[in-house]
Design a protein around this nucleic acid. Sequence first.
DNA 1: GTCTATGCAAAGTATTTGCAACGTT
DNA 2: AACGTTGCAAATACTTTGCATAGAC
Lengths: 153, 153
Amino acid sequence: MNSRTAQDLLDAHIHRERLKHTGQRVVVLQTFLSAEGHVSIDQLLQDCRKVAPGIGHATVYRAMKLFVDAGIAIERRFQDGQTRFEPVNPEGHHDHLICTVCGVIVEFEDPVIEERQHEVARANGFRTTHHRHEIYGTCLDPSTCARRPSLTA
Amino acid sequence: MNSRTAQDLLDAHIHRERLKHTGQRVVVLQTFLSAEGHVSIDQLLQDCRKVAPGIGHATVYRAMKLFVDAGIAIERRFQDGQTRFEPVNPEGHHDHLICTVCGVIVEFEDPVIEERQHEVARANGFRTTHHRHEIYGTCLDPSTCARRPSLTA
DNA sequence: GTCTATGCAAAGTATTTGCAACGTT
DNA sequence: AACGTTGCAAATACTTTGCATAGAC
């Protein structure tokens, strides 16, 4: 999602809910959009403080919740205990491949799996709303893998 | 997994690691095995206390970690913040369908999806070790769905 | 007797909430 | 002026850890 769309979605949501525009929300939004996907609150807070030193952690939590409501961000929880956020992708969702050694997160999307999930749900008397699919493994190329910092470090 | 196998695995692990057999571990193991899958620590603690009133929560946490190490239990985290445990299934793993209204958790296993995951991983230069796949949706049958207590309630 | 396990309380994480001061409209 | 927002601190929820005592071997 580009900065333009995100800002429009936020404006619309703020107007709809009778909320207010604030400097902090602009900072959190810009920081969030310029971070590479899958940012943790902690990382986000640190980055925001480079621009707005006085910003509090509760503000970042509250802003991210607002962005989720506004349709700008998606909340993700992997296995490391921290909630991470990524920008909504208007062209559709994707799932994740995660290396347990170096922590790199790769996005994927597979129509066969998507299709099959709906069939499985239907066969069990469910209507699918969303899903979570994470494949854990290790990078086959040790040279690039070993150099990246681990997710759990 | 039956009680017999679980006990054997635990005995083996205890012997291997030079640990000790204790009454509490027996209680937690029996309680865990007789609970239907996906028990939370909290539920487990309450159930254990029916049999052994003095048992502490730390003991249950420690016992479950031990069972995971022994290959008896698997740790699962769904979206509700609590860690849940289920017995290891020796015939292979399965994934989950979860109703967001009533909270019922149904297990599924689909060879097409399994196969496809490995291909996706390979295509991205990964070797799969494990994965997590949860499909969220709603029960199509409202009569059974509405009667069950919600996961998030 | 040695060394692990237990129960309690305290500490640690991640996140949420109460509240007075502040900023937006 | 009215009301949502902020930053702080306190509260909450879940899990882990320190420590003295109890129990297994």
